[in-house]
């Protein structure tokens, strides 16, 4: 049974697209046939983060409007056979994302895929609500920072009241917290909210903690999902979070300040 996972946050710039790309790559690496969809109509960026910006011909809106079929629009990843990218349109018409059309496309995707990752736009407008409406699970991407935590709380409320599961009185959307850009050294100095602080305030289960890492910018520069960089702390943290999403137990890593040994100081990279 295919699972629809929304990547959402309310606030912009916290790492939704990075997370959507990393989870899609991680699930594909684990052998699950996965598609990642860009819901940010008019501000397409998932294609750049996934490194397939030159291969976009048809998009989500073309398929919704019946101008192209699904298999013409899906882009097969060149690094992993289980991974597909579904780009959005650059149209300025935000209402192009009609709910009935999205539902029809998702039903068709469910026939082919194990996981459907929905990369939400920022905000709480039409696009963001559409991205979470059909979700079975949601990943709330949050930075340890006051405005991000507050906006995450808003989105958790919207998931609980305005998702299809809520409207139909079905079991609620399985909602998880993913803390990104976490800096254990600053946390240790008392300069940053701790994992426990954020979890206590939002009270949703913790799926993972992604440390602030140079590898995230390097990944987006080169159009490679960071989960493909298994040498980097962020890549490994994402792979752990993917394992937890699949129901495995993994110890939280990268939450303590790193002790840099002599050789790491000489040759190490973040």
């Amino acid at each position: 049974m295919a699972k629809v996972v929304a990547i959402t946050s309310g606030k912009g710039g916290v790492g939704k697209t990075t997370t959507a790309a990393a989870f899609a790559a991680g699930l594909a690496l684990r052998g699950h046939k996965t598609v990642v969809i860009d819901f940010d109509v008019g501000l397409r960026n998932l294609d750049l983060v996934m490194g397939c910006e030159r291969r976009v011909v048809f998009d989500f809106i073309n398929v919704i409007n019946g101008d192209a079929n699904l298999n013409q629009a899906l882009i097969k990843d060149k690094r992993n056979d289980n991974l597909y990218i579904f780009p959005t349109s650059q149209t300025r018409d935000k209402d192009a994302l009609k709910r009935e059309g999205v539902e029809r496309v998702l039903e068709e995707l469910k026939q082919q895929f194990d996981f459907i990752i929905c990369d939400s736009p920022a905000g709480i407008e039409h696009g963001a609500v559409t991205a979470l409406y059909f979700a079975d699970a949601a990943i709330i991407v949050t930075n340890p920072e006051v405005s991000s935590v507050r906006d995450s709380d808003r989105i958790i409320g919207i998931l609980a009241s305005r998702s299809r599961r809520a409207e139909r009185n079905e079991p609620p959307v399985e909602t998880n917290l993913l803390l990104t850009r976490y800096d254990p050294a600053r946390v240790a100095k008392g300069e940053m909210l701790t994992v426990e602080d954020v979890q206590e305030i939002l009270s949703v289960p913790l799926l993972g903690v992604i440390p602030e890492s140079e590898s995230v910018l390097r990944a987006s520069n080169t159009g490679t999902p960071v989960a493909f960089d298994e040498d980097s702390p962020a890549g490994r943290a994402y792979l752990d979070a993917v394992a937890r999403l699949l129901g495995e137990q993994r110890e939280m890593r990268f939450v303590q300040p790193e002790r840099r040994g002599f050789f790491r100081v000489l040759f190490g990279r973040a």
Binding site: G51, E53, R54, L217, R218, N221, T222
Partner: peptide
């Protein structure tokens, strides 16, 4: 350098 790759990709797109 990854920044050079980023710049090139952005120019094209």
């Amino acid at each position: 350098k990854s920044a050079a790759i980023a710049k090139e990709r952005l120019k094209i797109v």
